[in-house]
Write a protein that binds this DNA or RNA. Structure first.
Ligand code: SF4
Ligand code: SF4
Lengths: 151, 151
DNA sequence: TGAACTCAGACTAATTTAGTCCTATACTCA
DNA sequence: TGAGTATAGGACTAAATTAGTCTGAGTTCA
C-alpha cells in the first residue's frame, strides 16, 4: 500500500531519460522501452497519456517520438503521477468510483486529508531534474565528485 | 495508487476511538466496529495484529476488549500502518514478494527512495493524538523534506 | 508506396485488497 | 463448573485494482 503504480514509475523513468537526452531530436517509445526493458506497448500508452496531459510533445511518423514540452526543472513528479494515475488521494473516500460508504461516520477523513496535502506538496516540490543523477554513488566509483557537485 | 489500504484506515479509526475513550476500561472489537460500521470480523483481525505488534493491549473474556498500550501522543500513524500493512515502500522494488526485475537498470530507484523516506518521516511525525478533533487548531505542520533540500 | 512511428480502445491476466467462515482458546461471573 | 463473551488465528472466497496484450487505425517522410 501507499505504493506508486509501475505505470507512474515507468513514466518517471521515461521523463528522466528524455531529460537526459534533451539534445537529441526525438526518442521513440520503443527506444526508451528498450533502454530500460519496459514492455514497449505499455510504455507507449503511458507516453500517450503524458502527451495528452501536455507534459510531452509527440511527433508521429518515421523518426518520430517524444520530447519534453517543458524544461525538466518545470515538471514535477506530482504532475506525472497525476497524469498517469489520476488525482492523488491516500484515502479511498474519493476515488471517483465507489466512494467509501463510511464518509458519514468517519472521523479521520479530515486529518488524513491534511497528510494527503503534505504528500502532494512533497511531490510537487520534486521535479524531474531532481531525479537526474548527480550523485552516482551506486555503481562504479564516480570520477571526481567535488564538494560543489554534492551540495 | 499511493493509497492507504482500508485496513490501515480502519486501524487508525479504531486507535483514535480508543484514544478518545481512554478512560473507559476496555472496548471490544464489536463496539468499535459498530460505532463506525466497519465489518466486525475484519476489524477484529486488525486489532489482533496491532496487539501482536505491541500497540494495543488485549483482554479476553467477558467485558474484555482492547486499550492503547501507550499514550496517544506516543503512537505514530507510521507505526499503525506498518503494523497492519508491513513496511512502507512507494516503489515496487522491495515488496518482499516479487521484486521488480528492473532494479538493475533502474535509475530512479535511489531518488525515489529519498521521497519514500520523506513520506515515512511525515507519517512518523503524525501521531494518533493529532487525529483527535481539535478543529481550528493550527498544529505545527509536519516538516517537509524535499529532495532538493536533502542535498 | 511502405517502413517506422503515434494514437486509441477493448481485452485478458496477474496481483493485491477486502471481507467471510470456522475453529480454538482465554477469561469472567453467576 | 459451565454458560457466555471475548480474543486469536488460519484458510478461504470475492472484489477491485494494476499490469500487460492485441488489434486497428492515422501520420510522416523518404
Ligand atoms: S471515509 Fe474515512 S474510512 Fe472511508 S476512506 Fe475516507 S478516511 Fe478512510
Ligand atoms: S526498480 Fe525502478 S522501476 Fe522497479 S520498482 Fe524500483 S523504482 Fe520502480
Amino acid at each position: 500500500m501507499l505504493r506508486l503504480t509501475k505505470k507512474a514509475d515507468y513514466g518517471l523513468m521515461a521523463l528522466k531519460y528524455l531529460a537526459e537526452h534533451a539534445g537529441e531530436p526525438s526518442l521513440s517509445a520503443k527506444d526508451i522501452a528498450e533502454a530500460y526493458h519496459i514492455p514497449p506497448q505499455l510504455l507507449a500508452k503511458i507516453l500517450q497519456k503524458l502527451t495528452r496531459e501536455g507534459l510531452l510533445r509527440s511527433h508521429a511518423g518515421m523518426n518520430g517520438g517524444y520530447s519534453l514540452s517543458r524544461d525538466a526543472k518545470e515538471i514535477s513528479a506530482f504532475e506525472v503521477i497525476r497524469a498517469i494515475d489520476g488525482p492523488l488521494f491516500i484515502t479511498s473516500c474519493t476515488t471517483g468510483t465507489s466512494t467509501c460508504d463510511l464518509t458519514a461516520s468517519c472521523t479521520i477523513k479530515e486529518p488524513l486529508a491534511r497528510v494527503n496535502e503534505s504528500i502532494v506538496e512533497l511531490l510537487r516540490n520534486t521535479r524531474i531534474s531532481d531525479l537526474l543523477d548527480h550523485s552516482g554513488r551506486e555503481e562504479a566509483p564516480p570520477e571526481l565528485v567535488t564538494i560543489a557537485s554534492v551540495s
